[in-house]
Design a protein around this nucleic acid. Structure first.
Length: 403
DNA sequence: GTCAATTCACATGAAAGAGACCACGGTCTAGTG
DNA sequence: CTAGACCGTGGTCTCTTTCATGTGAATTGACGA
């Protein structure tokens, strides 16, 4: 591409007026200074945490609710308020927030504890130390002076699913061995039945109090979107009905506010890229498709070779007009694909797990069914929209070097 | 026709191994005064 | 004499294999009406 053409693109971009004032308001990481439609939950949580201000240990709390129902924001918001007051009154309260899922920072017992210790300024190597050594360091650090620690464990269900409930058990029991400080836990989970799999002892000590976050309804979502859109977009950019449609889309998916905001942001970006002055309803449809496409492509690209090969096998079978297939079929094709790719085939046991993982990622649907006399297996079908399939297949072929 | 036993084709669990990474402490080596 | 290179040990982490056990309903076959 000639240079002047590129510079033309940039120039054009600069000439076009941005539709946004402050795009970050719509981003997932943004914490608004004022929360709406979560008053009740904030009040509850505040009541539970209030004893901390008298340096009494607050109960451990458990926050439940589906994704995008404001659990994290509520916890962070309330925690911020309490630290503000504690600072004013000089009460030693420390709030630590750990997300157990985000980018593998803290998804093992060792890493969580190490992460916690790091929050208190200790330098813990990423590996190499025995786990109990890290525990010890953490213990000593927090017990160093008299203080009250509120530990927010976000996506705690992910953590427990991966490494078991031992950490939680250890953390809830930590108070008995601490002399100076005390530790309270706020657990956040979007899995509603998560505690059922928990050790009863852990369960009772962790969820001394529970707050359930109901999904937002369409009206509430509209309020939230409007509030944010006012700050994010320039005046008059948002067309009539756009907010409503965004809210309706998200409400359909269990009232996920995060998704609603993302939809609105991407719709804005799409409009901007097309050089249009207004965000209209059609942009939302485009945004929805783009989000889905980006998500799937990103997942497929970042999968390891084995997973990709498995996926490739599934798509190959699908191309043979088999809309549903079973684990055995996939494994057979997978083995021949491995030969083509030059990969050591894994055992069926492992491939079975991989199929389960791909199902979790939402690329395929895999349902365990029993075919009676003919055994039990997974019924597998492809779960991505027709429009992206060719693209995915090319990505797989490129990545695996086959045709 | 009814009902329990059988049977299939995997699912699901648990344990353990391989190989990568890392910290720590001890030993060796080369450079310095 | 000392800083840095180099080892061995012991630890974690991820991915995988091996072995074992579980499972839901179509099928089978005995049984009785």
């Amino acid at each position: 591409m000639p240079t002047n053409e590129i510079s033309k693109i940039f120039e054009n971009f600069l000439e076009k007026e941005s539709l946004f004032i402050e795009k970050k308001v719509l981003q997932a990481s943004y914490t608004p200074e004022e929360l709406i439609h979560r008053d009740e939950e904030i009040k509850q949580l505040a009541k539970i945490l209030a004893p901390a201000l008298r340096t009494e240990k607050p109960s451990n709390v458990f926050l439940y609710g589906k994704t995008g129902t404001g659990k994290t924001v509520t916890a962070q918001y309330t925690a911020a308020e309490i630290t503000k007051i504690s600072k004013e009154k000089n009460i030693p309260i420390i709030v630590v927030y750990v997300n157990c899922k985000l980018s593998r920072i803290a998804d093992t017992e060792y890493r969580v504890i190490a992460q916690l210790a790091r929050e208190f300024g200790k330098n813990i190597p990423p590996t190499g130390l025995p786990t109990d050594e890290v525990y010890k360091i953490f213990f000593q650090t927090i017990d160093h002076e008299k203080q009250l620690i509120i530990l927010i464990l976000d996506e705690i269900d992910q953590l427990v699913k991966k490494v078991g409930d031992e950490i939680i058990y250890n953390l809830t029991r930590i108070n008995t061995s601490l002399k100076n400080s005390q530790l309270s836990i706020i657990g956040i989970s979007n899995d509603l039945v998560f505690t059922d799999h928990l050790d009863p002892r852990v369960k009772s000590s962790l969820s001394e109090e529970e707050i359930i976050f109901p999904p937002y309804n369409a009206i509430q979502l509209q309020d939230i979107l409007r509030r944010r859109a006012e700050r994010a977009f320039k005046k008059g950019v948002i067309n009539q009905g756009v907010i409503e449609k965004c809210a309706a889309y998200a409400a359909r998916e269990h009232g996920d506010a995060r998704r609603a905001l993302e939809l609105l942001r991407v719709a804005g970006e799409v409009a901007e890229r097309n050089g249009e002055q207004q965000v209209t309803i059609t942009h939302i449809d485009a945004a929805e498709e783009k989000i889905e496409r980006d998500r799937v492509i990103d997942i497929v690209k970042t999968q390891p070779k084995q997973q990709q090969t498995t996926l490739f096998a599934i798509f190959s079978l699908y191309a043979e007009k088999k809309n549903v297939m079973y684990t055995g079929d996939v494994y057979d094709v997978y083995k021949t694909s491995c030969k083509k790719v030059g990969l050591q085939p894994l055992t069926q046991r492992r491939v079975s797990d991989i199929i389960g993982e791909l199902d979790m990622l939402g690329i395929i649907n895999a349902k365990v069914i029993s075919k009676g006399r003919f055994g039990r297996t997974r019924e597998i079908s492809v779960a991505i929209p027709q429009s992206i399939k060719p693209k995915i297949i090319t990505i797989l072929q490129q990545s695996l070097n086959v045709d």
